[in-house]
């Protein structure tokens, strides 16, 4: 177990920059998510840390030791692959024991640790099965046990839950978190599922076009996104942008919006969809700002509801609990309102 740090790592494939001077610290024992749309470089970064891809520039340290020149097999990592990559010719126990055998820990020790690991993932009873005799969830558990049984310095997970259906995925998220806490291993995982990233991790790093655009605790990143991209990528957000005139933001159509204190220099703001309210009557109150909008569609989704509205030709989304919504027509003029300090200044990118 060790901390991992990535510093100014760059990797180009032909003409495309897969990673562009990426830096991020992964302190000891934490659970970290690398998040981003497909093609953002998150998997490339994981594979650079693993050693399958060699960076053009920059430093990678595991436990303080530079590993750029250390081949995969000597980096002492544990990795779980998207398709699990269980060896089809070996039983569950042999799969889990593979790394122990390579490390020559001795037969008795090997047996004990296989049993322990399988117990931890609740697969002890299936130790003699072959991978093709297991269900998706069971394979996932075996792959996980195989990755951590050697007590690697860091556990790397490549989209570990993407092959499972939704119900199983939620179970496995809880399970994964439990096991990670129990063995206390530094864990870095790649996902394109933002909800999964927010649920599981202590810190997330969001990548876009090969660049690390924001890193931090999930709550901080969610509440204070740096840029339009992150605001819209994590959850739902609406964006206001325009010219600053006399302490107000003049948006398209000439309407003015109040700017929160301490953000006077900015001209682009993001607000969470759930931080906006929708009503038929014009709302009142000093610290709330309001704007007229056209309701386009109201989408029912169980506990939550989404309203699509248009403000001067620009679409916005309002998310609220179904039971908190007022009675609304199917479409027509409505009012949007929000507390001014919910507006967060963001970079327009």
């Amino acid at each position: 177990m060790a901390e991992v740090s990535v510093e100014n790592v760059t990797k180009t494939f032909g003409a495309t920059k897969a990673l562009d001077s990426v830096s991020m610290d992964f302190p000891n024992g934490g659970f970290f998510a690398l998040l981003g749309p497909s093609g953002s470089g998150k998997t490339t970064l994981l594979r650079v840390i693993a050693g399958f891809i060699l960076a053009d520039n920059g430093h990678i340290r595991i436990g303080g030791e530079p590993v750029e020149r250390v081949p995969v097999e000597r980096r002492d990592i544990g990795m779980m692959f998207q398709n699990y990559a269980l060896f089809p010719n070996m039983t569950v126990a042999d799969n889990v024991g593979f790394g122990l055998r390579v490390r020559k820990v001795g037969a008795a020790e090997e047996k004990r640790r296989i049993a322990e690991a399988l117990e931890l993932v609740q697969m002890g009873s299936l130790r003699d099965r072959k991978p093709h005799e297991l269900s998706g969830g069971q394979r996932q558990r075996v792959a996980l046990a195989r990755a951590f049984v050697t007590n690697p310095r860091v556990l790397l997970l490549d989209e570990p839950l993407s092959a499972l259906d939704k119900a199983l995925r939620v179970d496995m998220q809880i399970e994964l978190k439990r096991i990670q806490r129990e063995i206390g291993i530094t864990t870095i995982f790649v996902t394109h599922d933002q909800e999964e990233a927010l649920t599981l991790s202590d810190k997330i790093g969001i990548l876009r076009n090969g660049r690390m655009v924001q890193a931090g605790a999930p709550r901080d990143v969610y509440n204070a996104p740096d840029s339009v991209f992150i605001a819209e990528f994590l959850g739902d957000a609406n964006i206001f942008s325009g010219q600053v005139e006399g302490g107000a933001l003049r948006i398209a159509g000439g309407r003015a919006i109040r700017i929160p204190k301490g953000a006077e220099g900015a001209n682009t703001f993001a607000i969470r969809s759930e931080d906006m309210a929708i009503s038929l009557e014009e709302p009142t109150g000093d610290d709330t700002d309001r704007i007229r909008a056209d309701l386009v569609q109201r989408v029912f989704a169980g506990a939550m509801a989404t309203c699509i509205v248009e403000v001067e030709g620009r679409r916005m989304k309002i998310v609220a609990r179904e039971r908190d919504l007022p009675a609304l027509p199917d479409e027509g003029p409505v009012w949007l309102s929000w507390e001014t300090d919910r507006l967060k200044p963001v970079k327009d990118e």
């Binding site: 060699l54 960076a55 053009d56 750029e68 020149r69 081949p71």
Partner: peptide, 8 residues
Amino acid sequence: MAKAWTRD
């Protein structure tokens, strides 16, 4: 890093 390439 060129060294690793050479290994392959």
